[in-house]
Structure formats: C-alpha cells, structure tokens
C-alpha cells in the first residue's frame, strides 16, 4: 500500500515567528526523517514544492484558459511538500505524527489508489 503524507503552505506562515533554534530543529527533524525513510526503503518519492505564493493558476476565463498569479487553494491549504511511502496506514500516520508533534501544524495522510483491479 502506498500513502501520500502531505504538508501544507500554512506551516510556513505558522513558523515565521518561531525562534531560530526552533526553525533549525524543524529543519533537522525533516532532514533526519527524510534520510531515515530513504534508508529504510519506505520512501517511494518525496519533494518540497516552491512557496505557494510563487504558484500560478490556470483559470478558464472568458472562454479561454488564462494563467493568473497565486495558488488555486488558499496559501495555508496549498500543498507545500509530500512523502509517498510504501507502508500500511498505521505506519503512515505514525510518520506524520512525528512531524506534527514538533510543528503543531496539521498534515494529511491519504491512500494512493492502485492501478490494478482489487483482488
């Protein structure tokens, strides 16, 4: 089973007023976790996305697709990064809990659908 563990743009805003030691601690936690998930083979893919404020959204406006500045969702709900892990739900939730325990900001865990028919 594969799960996507998602981090949102609101985390950036929520951490802006934290002291430098706290920010450094968060970076350390994320780097350590990323390294562990890759070494254990659980990590299928992981990426951080550029800040949502840099996003562009293509809208259908006046009968044509038009790119506009800014993310589709609100910045705080916009996807900021993810891990895709090969794990059961319990383990995926446990990974997310490690991050949320530090950042105090929510993460979403969602099953990735299979391409093959279910047995």
């Amino acid at each position: 089973m594969k799960y996507m563990i998602m981090m949102f743009g609101g985390l950036g805003a929520a951490t802006q007023n934290r002291p430098a030691e706290w920010i450094a601690g968060m970076h350390e936690l994320l780097m350590k976790l990323d390294r562990e998930l890759k070494e254990s083979g659980e990590c299928v893919a992981s990426d951080a996305l550029a800040d949502p404020s840099q996003a562009k959204t293509v809208c259908f406006t006046s009968g044509a697709p038009v790119p506009t500045d800014g993310p589709f969702a609100e910045v705080k709900e916009s996807l900021a990064g993810y891990w895709i892990v090969e794990a059961d739900e319990e383990r995926a939730l446990q990974i997310a809990a490690q991050v949320v325990g530090y950042t105090e900001y929510p993460m979403e865990v969602r099953r990735i659908m299979d391409h093959s028919a279910q047995p």
Partner: peptide, 28 residues
C-alpha cells in the same frame, strides 16, 4: 530574508534564508 525564502526553488537556500530571518526576529 523571508521574501527571498519564498522565492527560491532551492531547499538548502530556503532553509538558510529562513534561519537568517529567524535570527533577526524580536519575540512579539
């Protein structure tokens, strides 16, 4: 620093800039 952190597409650079910003923060 915070503006630059939002604009960069390099993760190490973003973390560096976030830390520089945090160092200058006066607690509210």
């Amino acid at each position: 620093y915070l503006r630059a952190a939002k604009m960069t597409a390099s993760l190490p650079e973003q973390r560096y800039l976030q830390l520089r910003a945090a160092r200058l923060h006066q607690p509210a």
